[in-house]
Design a protein around this nucleic acid. Structure first.
Lengths: 163, 163
DNA sequence: CCCATATAATTGAGTTTGTCAACGATAATT
DNA sequence: AATTATCGTTGACAAACTCAATTATATGGG
């Protein structure tokens, strides 16, 4: 049993999606935070994937690139735990990014089993563009919330996303 | 392009997951609401899947059962839109629930193309147990939040999950 | 120092999930 | 009545997840 961070992307790639009959909103499911989070994420990642596609990224590869560009040389195991992906998926993701010249595997002097992932200049460049694109996508996804509400939401989610 | 609600469940089925180095939290990704929502959902659905397994359900089939038990006879198309799944996935899910004797397809008198899904008594029974199990799982996943924070979070998520 | 045990990355096989196009039946539109 | 659209279904395919096994290395105990 497992629950990856992204799961194979959800079906229904539509960015916006049709309106939902209020009849269904009345059901108990619409009160479950997990369901709401899942639906919000589904909408958000459809939006994000749409803006990332022109850059040759998906939310998955973007998330790896983002950690690599933002954190101090994570190992693949650290990436796996942080992103809640199986180590073997990290291998595939890093392979693709490395082939694209966006990141590089470097030996970890402290542990020769481990490899630290570092961004290349091209990777940092692309990340900057991608991060900007994702911000605009997020802005669309979160259009219903004002700035204060977004901060609130971020804070609450951070509490449950990391324990 | 699509993003389903659940996506193929995320990898990394672990319910709790190891602690994350603070070094990674500093990265920009940890500020993105979509990422936080995805991680929260990943943790939550691992938890939920764990408690649902003994009942023969997963979060997916549970979500269908929940809508069916809570709403006024949704059609399969409505289920697909609400859950953000492809109609063909609904076919599979309803097939399984119907085979398990939990729901039934009934012809829609208003539209003979459409089929409304109704719970059987066994389905309603199982739903009650499952809903209770999911509540306890949610309680674990949201342990870091008090009641007021949970209400706040629910409200914010509802705003973005439905437009 | 040697051995047992544990961990990091990798591979590969197998399952599940998501994506998409096409079809038959029916409805809605003109 | 004819065109066009929609609902459920099927099937073929791609992407993602799951798990076990492997190799290399680390770690801890005798």
């Amino acid at each position: 049993m497992a629950e990856s961070l992204e799961h194979a992307g959800d079906p229904l790639g539509g960015v916006a999606g049709p309106a939902v009959p209020e009849r269904l909103l009345a059901a108990g499911l619409a009160d479950e935070i997990e369901f709401l989070a899942a639906r919000a994420r589904s909408l958000g990642s459809a939006q994000a994937n749409a803006v990332l596609a022109p850059l040759g990224l998906k939310v998955r590869s973007y998330s790896v690139l983002a950690v690599v560009c933002g954190a101090a040389e994570p190992s693949q195991r650290e990436l796996a735990e942080f992103l809640r992906l199986d180590p073997s998926q990290i291998v595939t993701l890093v392979d693709a990014l490395e082939q694209g010249g966006l990141v590089a595997r470097a030996p970890d002097p402290r542990d020769r089993r481990s490899k630290v992932i570092r961004p290349t200049p091209a990777g940092q460049d692309l990340y900057r563009q991608a991060a900007e694109a994702v911000r605009t996508a997020e802005d669309v996804s979160l259009a219903a919330l004002d700035g204060a509400e977004r901060d609130q939401l971020r804070g609450l989610l951070r509490k449950i996303a990391f324990g």
